[in-house]
């Protein structure tokens, strides 16, 4: 684990990663099992879903009595993104600007390596970490839906997980980009979180408030469609937009990191 900066960075977060994986596994299995216990008695919740606002916030859910509807009601539109974004943002900020603020980049960057190498390794570690969490998310959903006898394909679960992982990586890269530009940990986490929240609200509110509809494509969440992926499959356009966002942010961060003073 000490062979290069990426592996070393993953090593630094190994405990964090493990706990997140355990947490998300428990959450997923519990969430699927809930489906069995309330399957017969959904009228109340379905009634609540008549309320457009709630429906919007919960991802415009469809019939909760179907596996797609159930998973797409809260886990996929709300909990999943929350987990992946918070994970990737905190991973990125603690391993990049967090280490810089502790003075740890001094010894590192005095070695015969470029800042580009360091940034690339930090990015790769964040992406791999988020992907590992995605693996845990997928596996635990496979287990959970199987235990709950939910009729849903593992491939669809993989597709929605892939989307979630990209969403997480996008926000992680945003944090790296802000860190690369400013070197300030607070700016990185603060701005990334605010952008996440605003994006989420803009996307879900525009279900209800028609005046917001034209702005919907601005929201990152517009390109992560949660439960809809289970019903209609992945939209490659959405994936491309997320990937393009990651690439652009990566280069912005790299540009900033190469230009500025370290640890001032």
């Amino acid at each position: 684990m000490l062979n290069n900066i990426m592996l070393k960075t993953l090593r630094d977060k190994r405990k964090t990663l493990l706990w997140w994986a355990v947490g998300i596994t428990l959450l997923d299995i519990w969430y699927s099992l809930m489906f069995t216990s309330i399957e017969g008695d959904l009228s109340g919740i379905n009634q609540m879903m008549e309320n457009e606002l709630i429906k919007g916030l919960l991802g415009g859910a469809h019939n909760l009595a179907t596996p797609e509807g159930w998973l797409g009601a809260e886990l996929l539109p709300l909990l999943g993104p929350l987990v992946f974004i918070v994970f990737a943002v905190s991973f990125a900020s603690s391993t990049f600007t967090g280490q810089e603020e502790k003075g740890l980049l001094n010894v590192l960057l005095a070695n015969p390596i470029t800042r580009t190498t360091v940034f690339l390794h930090k990015f790769s570690a964040m992406a791999l970490g988020t992907l590992s969490l995605g693996l845990a998310f997928w596996l635990s959903n496979v287990i959970g839906t199987s235990l709950a006898n939910m009729d849903i394909s593992f491939l669809s679960l993989a597709e929605v997980t892939f989307s979630l992982v990209l969403l997480g990586i996008l926000f992680g890269t945003l944090t790296l980009a802000l860190g690369g530009l400013t070197g300030n940990r607070g700016v990185g986490t603060g701005a990334s979180s605010s952008i996440g929240v605003v994006s989420y609200l803009l996307n879900s509110m525009s279900e209800v408030i028609s005046g917001l509809k034209p702005f919907r494509p601005v929201s990152v969440f517009h390109y992560y469609r949660g439960g809809e992926i289970l019903r209609n499959g992945l939209s490659w356009f959405d994936i491309l937009v997320l990937l393009a966002g990651i690439v652009v942010l990566f280069f912005i961060g790299l540009y900033g990191f190469n230009r500025r003073d370290i640890g001032v």
Binding site: D12, G103, L104, N106, V107, A110
Partner: peptide
């Protein structure tokens, strides 16, 4: 290089 304010992991 030995930094003036040394931080190590």
């Amino acid at each position: 290089y030995l930094p003036g304010e040394l931080s190590l992991f």
